[in-house]
Write a protein that binds this DNA or RNA. Structure first.
Length: 320
DNA sequence: GATGGACCTCC
DNA sequence: GAGGTCCAT
């Protein structure tokens, strides 16, 4: 029997068997797709999905082991958790396909088995990535947390730990935010993006953003470009992480470097222009197919060195 | 189309 | 410089 009681005995944990559907919880929550998950001293991840508070725990390094979970204040909302973590998506056949298409990367895909693309609430995802430009993951996390704690509603867990969870603010709350306040709250020059994007969103029909899940990728991508502070990369992040566009490939400097090095060596040394952005994204889609965005996410994790390797080698050392 | 600079702030 | 975007040449 595992140490189920040691990580937090006061939580009425539920258990999900990942043996047929791997989940690498730490990599999934720390790949820079979502920025509000916090890990407490017991190793429990705390976060929110819409207005639901969530606790997650998994033994380290066991993506095929058990996932422990619970929701707050209403308990046992498995559908919410399963949907967010996309646990019904079969990864094993994907790894086979990707490794066949690109044998040089087979080892990487296996090393990070269970790293999943999340299915996030679209609004939170859009606003979070508005602050991702020229920024660091740590600072993005603090910026998004600031928005939630300043403008969001408190979620009650009924436990004394964690101290507090906050739902992501409503669009109308953000549209009325004070620019100086946001600037001071780590948003800097991105502050007006938040307010203007919120105001623009308010003018759309109810549920407009979420409804982009049902339109083709190209259409959703183009629609997102209307918003101030949203360029091709941010639009692709929202498409992939919140709008079910699994062929979307966000090309940041890391993915660009990797893509040019492995797939388009004749572009080596050239800067990332819109044309080359598209070329790299297309190269991913040609190799990895309609779920190229999932492959991109694993390769981003490896290339950006976000993970801590068990040995003492530098996390930046490349293995491919 | 491609290139250059500005933009908040923290490490 | 950091997981870009915008505006000017």
């Amino acid at each position: 029997m595992r140490q189920v009681t040691t990580h937090n005995s006061r939580i009425a944990w539920r258990r999900f068997d990942c043996s047929k559907s791997p989940l690498h919880l730490e990599a999934t929550l720390r790949t820079g797709q979502s920025f509000r998950w916090c890990r407490d001293a017991n190793g429990v991840w705390w976060g929110t999905i819409e207005s639901v508070g969530v606790a997650l725990w998994q033994p380290d390094g066991e993506p095929y082991g058990d996932l422990y979970w619970q929701t707050f204040p209403e308990p046992d909302l498995w559908e919410v958790v399963e949907d967010y973590l996309q646990l019904r998506t079969d990864l094993e056949s994907l790894y086979c396909r990707w490794s066949f298409a690109e044998p040089r990367l087979a080892e990487v895909f296996r090393a990070f088995a269970g790293l999943r693309v999340l299915r996030q609430p679209p609004e939170e995802c859009l606003f979070a990535f508005l602050c991702a430009t020229t920024n660091t993951v740590t600072k993005i996390e603090r910026s998004v947390r600031y928005l939630a704690e300043r403008y969001g509603a408190r979620i009650c867990t009924g436990l004394d730990k964690p101290a507090t969870l906050f739902a992501f603010p409503s669009v109308s709350a953000l549209s009325a935010a004070d620019e100086r306040d946001l600037r001071a709250g780590l948003w800097g020059y991105r502050a007006p993006f938040v307010i203007k994007t919120a105001q623009k969103l308010l003018q759309k029909p109810q549920g407009w953003l979420r409804a982009l899940r049902d339109v083709p990728y190209a259409e959703a991508h183009e629609a997102l470009l209307e918003f101030p502070g949203v360029g091709p990369k941010v639009a692709d992040c929202v498409c992939l992480f919140a709008l079910d566009k699994w062929e979307a490939v966000p090309v940041d400097r890391h993915i660009y470097r990797l893509g040019v090095r492995l797939f388009l060596p004749h572009f080596e040394g050239r800067s990332l222009t819109p044309r080359l952005y598209k070329a790299v994204a297309e190269a991913f889609r040609e190799r990895f197919g309609p779920m190229a965005g999932w492959a991109q996410q694993t390769l981003f994790y490896a290339e950006a060195g976000l993970y801590r390797r068990p040995d003492k080698e530098s996390s930046r050392q490349r293995r491919f």
